[in-house]
């Protein structure tokens, strides 16, 4: 059996437990590979969501556009990206939503790493700057 592993800060591994918990949410997102489903979601979000057996936690996270809440509810980022794409959001937008800073600050943190700063330093500057 796997031994207890030291947690990685700010990181949720998408494991069997998450995959079970998040199945309906990820199935919803997987459906967005098809334009007809994206259009149906945009036309009537509540009716489209009702086709999936989402948990109350998943409904709430979607209603609030709360990415961390979706991950806590078992969402996998590869699938959640398809939901974000419906709103024209890219991975910097999603990064901003998860770190609680502006998109510009999030991008500046990425660029700082490009100048040779460590993530830890760049991240601290992002939160304080």
């Amino acid at each position: 059996m796997p031994s207890e592993l030291e947690p990685i800060p700010g990181t949720t591994l998408f494991d069997g437990e998450a995959a079970r918990k998040g199945y309906a949410l990820n199935a919803l997102c997987f459906s967005f590979n098809e334009k007809v489903n994206r259009d149906a979601f945009l036309a009537d979000e509540a009716a489209y969501l009702a086709r999936f057996n989402l948990t109350p936690e998943q409904h709430e996270a979607i209603a609030k556009r709360d990415v961390l809440g979706m991950i806590a509810a078992g969402g996998n980022i590869y699938y959640l990206a398809k939901l974000a794409g419906i709103f024209g959001l890219n991975v910097q937008d999603v990064g901003s939503m998860q770190t609680g800073v502006s998109v510009d600050k999030f991008k500046a943190m990425l660029l700082a790493q490009g100048r040779g700063e460590s993530y830890e330093v760049a991240h601290k500057e992002m939160l304080n700057g």
């Binding site: 800060p9 700010g10 980022i77």
Partner: peptide, 12 residues
């Protein structure tokens, strides 16, 4: 890393 509070992590 795309997901979580650690989104934006890279390690040259």
């Amino acid at each position: 890393q795309l997901d979580g509070e650690r989104a934006g992590f890279m390690n040259a």
